[in-house]
Amino acid sequence: DVAKAIVDLAVCGKAQNRSYERLALLVDTVGPRLTGSPNLEKAIQIMYQNLMDDGLKNVHLEPVKVPHWERGQESAVMLEPRNHSMAILGLGSSVGTPPEGITAEVLVVSSFDELHRRASEARGKIVVYNQPYKGYGESVQYRVQGAVEAAKVGAVASLIKSVASFSIYSPHTGIQYYQDGVPQIPTACITVEDAEMMARMASRGTKIVIQLKMEAKNYPDTESFNTVAEITGSKYPEQVVLVSGHLDSWDVGQGALDDGSGAFVSWEALSLIKDLGLRPKRTLRLVLWTAEEQGGIGSLQYYQQHKVNISNFSLVMESDLGNFMPTGLAFTGSDKARAIMKEVMNLLQPINTTQVFGDGEGVDINYWIQAGVPGASLLDDLKRYFSFHHSQGDTMTALDPMQMNYSAAVWAVVSYVIADLDEMLPR
């Protein structure tokens, strides 16, 4: 009755709402946890102590060199055709503007293709991207590469429609990357509402002028840590099921949903298993990554340092797509492994979360998956997730304690059963 015991404890037993309450205490105390910030390092120290107090084994920190970027004050004011103060969020790694700001006419485009067609109009202007939302993976390319593409055609700054599935005038931040040999121009996200308004204005032939001010600054790399804790395997302790989420966040809201809840549901999975006195045959290893938002910096280093043991990794799991009511598991692995995962998910019939989808992935586990280790991610209402993450709305209010209970139940059952099977998942 292991699966039933885990679900009962998580959903209606004494562990009910525990992951939500633990997370609320952390994020209400330290706030958002931008890589390179004192907030993140304080959160890591608190988590280290939390995991020790929880009685988990082999609790330790693994140091990582991480980028250090700070936002500073920022503003964007439309000067023509009318005065309008715009909500913006500068993008991670963006350079700032001169103190007096950049004042320039706007060129609105809806795609990179349109930008390239109208390249001759872009010189000296602020490029505004009004790309349609075609799902996160496709639309996020505008945030990541928007500044580089605009700079290539002579723009002085870029303002990008937030990559958001829904908006109530809420800009979303995120990482962007410069390219060697291309001028580094300031870049920020604007709201869906302002991007669409400027597109309408431009289509009418109206001249738009914006003054952009950003104090953003990049500092030398600093030190952070991946946080690790385990339930040591009883029979094959060297073999591992890795359960994870990332502890860093952007510097907006509370980083509650991205990825505080994923990290805390992962911790909760080990807590539930330990509370029930269970000890799987293989080691259950919790890793709370650092610097995921900067492109999986902590997890890349972890992979490089631990890949020598890759044959001992049975399954890598990451929860970084929200912890609303789970709809199932996204899984990448062989047909044989998938068939086994489907059987494991059948154990979750009592909470009606039995589906195994394709494309299990996560920034922090992709290195392992690409190297052939089976990988799983927790799936839920992604539209809701992409409405909140990277925005000021990423707070505890966006989360629901009961939904986190169900997420934790799924995570604990899957991780425990796979870690306890007689054999590792087939590759």
Binding site: A3, Y236, S311, L347, R427
Partner: peptide, 24 residues
């Protein structure tokens, strides 16, 4: 140590299915 790596799968799928059902 009796380590079952990915090169050494001894159980049939039916046996694994029965094993998993034991966790219900």
């Amino acid at each position: 140590r009796a380590v079952c790596k990915d090169v050494c799968h001894l159980k049939t799928f039916e046996q694994i299915k029965e094993e998993i059902a034991g966790y219900q």
